[in-house]
Design a protein around this nucleic acid. Structure first.
Lengths: 205, 205
DNA sequence: TAGATTGTTAATCGATTAACAATC
DNA sequence: TAGATTGTTAATCGATTAACAATC
């Protein structure tokens, strides 16, 4: 049974928070504490946990390790999830460094660029390849997710290559809207739209 | 009457797309063309435009200039919207440069850092100030929105300063969840959560 | 037992879209 | 007129939350 996307987002956040609890040797947590720490409704937390089959204790709350394990069972791929980054500019470098230093099952294993000065260089421990090798590398290393951090003019072209190469999911950091077929799962970070949305509500509250 | 947040997001995207049409001297557009270009439903486009009072022509569609103007009336602040960026690291620099070169009514007018090597330097045409001056600058230049690009350990502290200084909206680029009172409009870009969400659906489609 | 919690259904809320009237 | 479009209500869909039973 497929989980709602909002539930998946919250599960990701529960896990990251609880991994800190694990370090603190706190074996249990109540739904209202988890909710408070993430500014959510406790009912929502209990419902999310119910959906993935976590069962709590009426006295002690939920077992932290059990939550972490069952979230992993749902979200993680056994083989790990290989991610590629396209566009080794300033933003690309920041994203690679961030992902390499975060403890997540998302493995960023290759970067790509068209600039010969960058190709075959190492950035934050991963190699920068020629965009021409994208298709081959995606298949060889079974990369299913791409993070796009190229300049706006290159976006359309890169997306076409990615789709042809069989990529399944895209995180688009450029503010250029991209057109994807419905079988590609797409998330777009559009900072202009986000700032304009914030501006709208700030002026009306 | 307050617009739904999803409508505001789409209006922002309509406007950016239509500004290109304006350059091409295309005076009109049909709802189904606008919808197709942004992968939306034409009914949704017409409904959004109806909500802001745009009226179309049964033969020629909607007037591009009229849409742009009425979106501006709703979203833009007459005085312009002043934005500050906190944390002049690599990510911060990228964001400043991007916002300075985009044509948006969002004016990024100041950057802040705690590093003396950065303070009083100019980045992409704006000055980097000491975080200690945040409160004063926010009031003086009526900055209502902050973009946060500081390292995780500084986030909590910075948010407290921003809230005390009366900031109204925050775009959080760090993957550290922040706790804001309900009168602050917050958008968070959490790339770990986004990648895990993509991974979940990619493995199930 | 009383009180605090989990577990789960049903009601509600918000957003999208189907249906169709009106117009050119 | 026929066909294509806009305009708008009502139905539907998805997500959240209220209500309350069950348990320790």
């Amino acid at each position: 049974m497929q989980l709602p996307s909002r539930t998946v987002q919250r599960l990701s956040k529960y896990r990251r928070l609880l991994l800190k609890f694990q370090d603190l040797k706190e074996p249990h947590i109540f739904s209202h504490d988890l909710a408070r720490l993430l500014q959510l409704n406790p009912v929502q937390v209990r419902r999310d946990l119910m959906l993935i089959g976590v069962s709590g204790n009426h006295r002690k709350g939920y077992n932290v390790n059990e939550i972490i394990e069952l979230i992993g069972n749902r979200i993680d791929n056994e083989k790990g999830q290989n991610v590629a980054l396209i566009g080794v500019g300033n933003l690309g470098k920041v994203v690679v460094r961030y992902l390499k230093t975060s403890d997540t099952k998302m493995n960023i294993i290759a970067a790509f660029d068209i600039d010969n000065k960058k190709i075959n260089k190492c950035i934050s421990g991963i190699n920068c390849h020629n965009v021409c090798d994208l298709r081959e590398m995606i298949k060889q290393y079974s990369i299913s997710i791409a993070v796009i951090t190229v300049p706006p003019d290159y976006v359309e072209n890169i997306v076409q290559i990615l789709i042809d190469a069989g990529i399944k999911g895209i995180l688009n950091f450029t503010s250029t809207h991209i057109d994807t077929p419905p079988n590609i799962y797409l998330i777009e970070y559009d900072m202009i739209t986000s700032l304009e949305e914030i501006a709208y509500f700030v002026n009306r509250d």
